[in-house]
Simulated scan of single mutants.
Amino acid sequence: MVREHRYEAARFVWGEGAIGRLEGLLSEASVERAMVVCGEHVGANEALMDAVGDALGERRVHTYTGARGDTPLRTVEAGVDAFREHDIDSLVSVGGGSASDTAKAISVFAAEDGRNLHEMKTRTTDDGESHVPDLSAPKTPVFAVSTTLSAAEVTNIFGVTDEEAGDKAVVLDEKIRPTACVYDPDATATTPPATIASTGMNALDHAVEILYSDGHAENPFYQATAEKAIDLLVSNLPAAVNDGDPDALAAAQLGAGLSGFGIVGGISINHGINHPLCARHPVSHGDGNSILLPHGIRFTFDAVPERMARLASALGVEVEGDSTADEATLEAMCDVIRELQKEIDVPYRLRDVGVDRDDFEAMAEIAAHDSAMANNPKRITESDIVDLLEAAW
């Protein structure tokens, strides 16, 4: 069998003062009219926004503060209106996953004029295959200043929530992978510890799913980045969250960035369920994936024991006997995750985050066709999803 790996094109700039590189990055891309995309809280952070404004100089022509959690469709549409009104040729997201996804969505919606969200979304067919619509229009470049551990800034994929349909649709387009990702410790230091914890668990889930997914688990390049991401996140999240340790925070953010490699083709069962979960209930993306994380491992465990053994090793669990994982390994893996959840005080049960148990069947119907499900090595039915949600309750 002949295989091929292409490195995902992205430029990373990190370290103290990294935000100051923005003007040069935009200059190299020959763009002159930037719209900053962020949420209200980031927009009100004068120190951070002044640093971004100083770095962009005259290239910043507008700031759109409409980004919201889970990227509601209405906020994207409002962003497209602002984009057109100010004749924008570049987008600079400042914040976490919602800011990054909003900027990418604005780029796609503005370019693919006349196509609605559900015409552009990626989905899993009834046969378990992935269907990705062609989005051929040229896209406005996106630059990302990350203030969380979401890893959305690394990827060519984003989610938009259709609140009326109760669905979070995923859109894939290589042309909207951010041109540059900027990690500045001064920016991340302004982020609340609870947000670092939640987004850190989301990044951990990326890497875990990549290591057992059908899409990337046998790819040594993605094995390497996912394993390093797990090591950096598990080792540094407690100090980053509980102590605000700048070195631990910087290491965790790099771990999150590494978890973004391989998301397309790597995320699977947990993300597939989490998309309708967050679209229909007041749960953040990170908290949802944190809660689902051990349950996805449990469901998939017996289908790919060799992959689970590699995952166990990445989590610091010793695999005894032959090279495959057994039930004791499974329990030890789940214990590592649960201990980390306790240390950084993130939720681990759906009942604790306002999820309506009566909605499980409706969520399962949507989740079964989510684009991420095509990557799971064990086929999952709507009934299986309901059982998994019950276990997570």
Rank of each mutant, 00 (worst) to 15 (best):
S290C: 09
I291V: 12
L292Y: 15
L292W: 15
L293I: 12
H295F: 14
G296D: 06
R298G: 01
F299N: 00
F301C: 01
F301K: 02
F301E: 00
D302R: 08
E306V: 03
R307D: 00
M308G: 00
A309D: 00
A309C: 01
S313A: 14
S313H: 03
A314F: 01
L315V: 08
L315A: 02
L315R: 03
V317C: 05
E318W: 05
E318A: 15
T324G: 07
E327F: 12
A328K: 13
E331R: 15
E331G: 14
E331D: 15
A332E: 15
A332D: 14
M333K: 02
C334P: 03
D335Y: 13
V336E: 09
I337K: 09
I337F: 03
R338A: 05
K342P: 01
K342W: 05
K342T: 10
D345I: 03
P347I: 10
P347L: 11
Y348W: 14
R351W: 04
R351G: 15
R351P: 00
V355F: 11
D356E: 08
D356P: 05
R357C: 03
D358P: 02
D358E: 09
A364V: 05
E365M: 09
I366P: 03
A368S: 08
A368V: 15
H369P: 05
H369W: 13
D370G: 07
A372F: 04
M373K: 10
N375Q: 05
N376L: 06
R379L: 11
I380P: 02
T381F: 13
E382G: 13
E382T: 14
E382Q: 10
L389C: 14
L389I: 13
L389E: 04
E390Q: 15
A391E: 15
A391D: 15
A392Q: 11
A392E: 12
